[in-house]
Design a protein around this nucleic acid. Structure first.
Lengths: 258, 258
DNA sequence: CAGTGGTCTAGACCACGTA
DNA sequence: ACGTGGTCTAGACCACTGT
């Protein structure tokens, strides 16, 4: 069997300083090697690391394999690559966290509770000046204003205020949103989009506290979301949650986020 | 000049169906092509896309180049690759958002305000049962408890409660934290780490509202963070912000986050 | 058995920063 | 002038899946 003399396998088994994870691929093991050097402090932040050629011969592999590893590490911002200069251990991690953005119905279902919603308001109107501030939409555009309450079992879970641009989504005018929640409907219409969101802490105002069935003046989280499709404004939404019933989790790897 | 007859450039200039972005690289342009096919709906979610070989000949490039593009698109979760089966347009985006996690001193400085902090409490003690719930630490471990207030100019900006494991970071016992904020000090000691954080909305309690100089019962955001280094618990921190003065922003591309 | 993606190699040319 | 990373090619072998 010439498998036994396969260049790859024998190479991998004799990779320097590597516990031979025979099941993982070469570039994964090399990546682990390099990450270990960085995390252990053997390669200090800011320090220049060996060139691709040098790493290739050190790991007895081709330059392309090293390039693949370093490109991935650069994307992960563990290292910084300066073309024609060299590769350096990053001074600081990007300190970003990834949070999951769930559809309300999915959130509720994940909690093992029956999901339902009620449409509280539906109005077609022209965008006012006050809208345009948050909507990045020209004044007097046709918009659809919606408000609905999402329930987990019999309990109000979240209040949704939404504005949909009828310029971008004309079909919305003929949809009642009684049977299908706005989010669900929009997803079916606008499969891909860009969004920007911000999270605020607020005190529940009178109407919100009444709808969500919490004491007036309780703490709440609001998530505001603006959505575009190729630079065209599609929809704005604000989700109001009773604060004690909700939180947002995130995981990350970071230097500065300690 | 033989630049004019450079194989790459001529290839790129004649790439089928591509506006010739002469400044960008081949794989970038191919990636754009494929993304356009997906975003435009020409390739529907769930649909199988041509094999690497086919894409390579369609774009008149090598299979490796296509592989690089598809690997990147798979990482971005625009497509799903099933080894030995094929490549498919993803059914749904991962609906995750990336939020920036800033050091408080950086946040304040970014606002153009002078940063300072005051140490309010520093106590060495054994971990209680109540601590262990949030700390994932064995009971009676030596810990250091800190509380400090971060200022933007003369105004309190954020209250930090922190617990440091003296098992993982024994040096902390001999550090006063008067001249250097805990975060800054920890970053210098623990350059890399993993963290998990959650964001809550709360009502400011009496002590917090007094320190932050806000009315009792105002809405606030708290960020809780647990940090590990290679599975060893390092530190826990809670940052309390007055809610109206702070929010968290995130940008993402999503299907379900509409 | 044919087709697929996963992986790796050994070359190559380029532009450009540093010296 | 040299070294660097950025990029691309043309081939190769593999394991596995579906038919």
């Amino acid at each position: 069997m010439d498998n036994l003399t396969d260049g790859d396998v024998t190479l991998l088994a004799t990779t320097p300083e590597g516990e031979s994870y025979l099941s993982t691929s070469l570039h994964e093991r090399i990546r682990r090697d390099i990450e270990t050097k960085i995390f252990s402090g053997q390669w200090q932040p800011g320090q220049r690391i060996p060139a691709e050629d040098a790493l290739a011969s050190a790991h007895q592999c081709s330059r392309m394999t090293i390039n693949k590893v370093l490109t991935a590490l650069a994307k992960a911002e563990l290292i910084v690559r300066k073309p024609k200069v060299g590769t350096f251990v990053a001074l600081r991690r990007s300190n970003t966290a990834v949070i999951e953005v769930l559809d309300v119905s999915v959130e509720v279902t994940n909690l093992g509770l029956p999901y339902s919603f009620t449409l509280l308001r539906r109005a077609k109107r022209k965008a006012l000046k006050s809208d345009c501030a948050k909507l990045s939409l020209p004044p007097a555009s046709n918009i659809l204003e919606l408000r609905c309450c999402h329930f987990a079992g019999n309990h109000p879970f979240c209040l949704e205020d939404r504005i949909i641009s009828l310029v971008s989504v004309p079909d919305a005018e003929h949809e009642s949103f009684v049977a299908m929640a706005p989010t669900t409907w929009l997803i079916s219409k606008i499969p891909w989009s860009e969004a920007e969101q911000s999270i605020h802490a607020v005190l529940a105002d009178e109407e919100t506290s009444r709808i969500l069935d919490v004491p007036r003046g309780s703490a709440g989280l609001t998530i505001e979301r603006n959505t575009w499709l190729a630079d065209r404004f599609v929809t704005w939404a604000r989700f109001s949650y009773p604060g004690d019933a909700y939180h947002i989790s995130a995981k990350f790897v970071s230097a500065t986020g300690i």
